[in-house]
Amino acid sequence: MEIVDSAVHDKARQRAQEEALAALVDQYATTLFRVAFSVLHNQSDAEDAVQEAFLRVLRHRETLGEIRDHRVWLIRIVWNIVLDRKRRAKTRPETDDIAELGRVLPAAGLTAEQRAAAAQHHAHVLACVEQLPAREREVMMLSAFEELSSVEIAEVLDVTESSVRSRLFRARNLLAELLGHPRSIR
């Protein structure tokens, strides 16, 4: 019967989509978490963002077959989510970042004092990065992910590759000034 065949076909297709989605979660959940954490600096917020990203994928799972590069596509989704969350959230105090970094950064071979000093240093760097203009800051943060080439960063940000390079150049210059003279760029 045709209706029965269609129902069976729909069910099989739905099962295949769910398996594909589960495979994406297994493969990219960690990467997406790191991207989210680099912006939000908070573990639970970053995990929430990852879950939201996959929920969006679930809602548009019919388009999964049309995606050329799932990794860049997923990073772009989670990137937009975390930027949106960051815009809506209040500015976190630097002390929160220090505490969070002190908790999550690897501490092998470090004393408690060294670990605290390292966390403070990293938080200071992040605070300087936060003062960069948005476009330069985004390129700089994404360029820290070694698995992302400049072409892929351009795809995530929906700009050209040359824009990525020029923004990265400007970001480095501005960051050098900020690290030398904090709070001088607004």
Binding site: R34, V35, F37, S38, H41, L101, V104, L105, H121, H122, V125, L126, C128, V129, M140, M141, S143, A144, F145, E146, L175, L179
Partner: peptide, 12 residues
């Protein structure tokens, strides 16, 4: 040094 910090966070 700043990029090292960003890379460290990116590999957590």
């Amino acid at each position: 040094d700043a990029e090292r910090t960003l890379r460290l966070i990116a590999t957590l």
